[in-house]
């Protein structure tokens, strides 16, 4: 079973500090990491390989520095990796990104599953996985929470929806996007780290891919960013101390009043 996993390198936002004056994120000194939601997809891919054989290839589109994220996936056990990188790819929206990834994947040979996290924690769109499915004309099963059954030519999954789980059976090749429930990601190993350092990672660019230059990067993107604003996240709320019988009672009463005023009860 050949599995391709999409990986994105994102800014590390878990230890991010907020500027108390402006209520915005302090970006200085932010490290880059593998998109945390991709780790679940990587883990699910590795488990499928362990159970059914085959290989897992991680692919990332980004600047040369995204090589670091790819090496981290190899340290977790991913067999091979490929970087899709070219200045002409810069500023791509999800339409152009999924196009470019699709063209790169066409160069990489046959596969059974393309796996991706449900979305990346920076762009927050979740559109690249399904978009890639459309470019490659493949079925897409999104928000997969459990894998139920795998045969030599199909996979049956639980797709998490608002009302419950939709059980979907899809033939290979297929695009699957995963949610956290699917698996607990493993840690990198020393041996994996060593192998990751020693492996040459190929780079796909406009030099060795068939691409329509007009569909690349910022220029090829149908959507354009008009402006970016940083909303103030702080709210000026009431804050009551409740540390004695009296103050607890009073705080609860005030809260109920407050809820009533807003017609929330």
């Amino acid at each position: 079973m050949n599995i391709i996993v999409l990986v994105k390198q994102v800014p590390e936002t878990s230890n991010v500090k907020m500027d108390p004056e402006t209520g915005t994120m302090i970006r200085e000194g932010l490290e880059t990491i593998i998109n945390p939601l991709d780790l679940y997809a990587i883990e699910a891919a590795l488990r499928l390989k362990e159970q059914h054989g085959g290989k897992v290839t991680a692919i990332s589109m980004g600047p040369p520095a995204a090589m670091k994220a790819l090496r981290e996936t190899m340290a977790m056990g991913v067999d091979e990796a490929a970087l899709v990188s070219d200045r002409k790819f810069g500023g791509a929206d999800t339409w152009a990104t999924s196009y470019t990834l699709g063209q790169a994947i066409k160069e990489m040979g046959e596969f059974d599953i393309i796996m991706a996290g449900e979305r990346a924690t920076d762009g927050d769109t979740g559109q690249v996985g399904p978009g890639l499915g459309a470019w490659l004309n493949l079925p897409v099963v999104s928000y997969v929470a459990h894998i139920k059954e795998v045969t030599k030519d199909s996979i049956t999954c639980d797709r998490l929806m608002e009302e419950g789980y939709q059980v979907v059976k899809a033939p290979f090749p297929v695009v699957i996007t995963t949610v956290k429930e699917i698996a607990e990601p493993r840690l990198p190993t020393l041996r994996g780290n060593k192998r990751a350092r020693q492996t040459e990672i190929p780079v796909y660019s406009t030099e060795n891919m068939t691409v329509d230059v007009g569909s690349l990067g910022l220029k090829g993107s149908p959507t354009k960013v008009v402006k970016i604003e940083t909303p103030k996240v702080t709210r000026s709320g009431t804050l009551l101390k409740a540390n004695s019988e009296e103050t607890i009672e009073s705080a609860v009463d005030q809260l109920i009043e407050w809820l009533k005023e807003r017609e929330l009860v």
Partner: peptide, 23 residues
């Protein structure tokens, strides 16, 4: 931006060749 909209719309956007803004 539900579990339906967030997969069907990006798929359609490619099929009809247009942009899509999420959520």
């Amino acid at each position: 931006a539900t579990t339906i909209g967030r997969v069907v719309m990006p798929y359609v956007a490619i099929k009809v060749n247009t942009g899509l803004t999420a959520d």
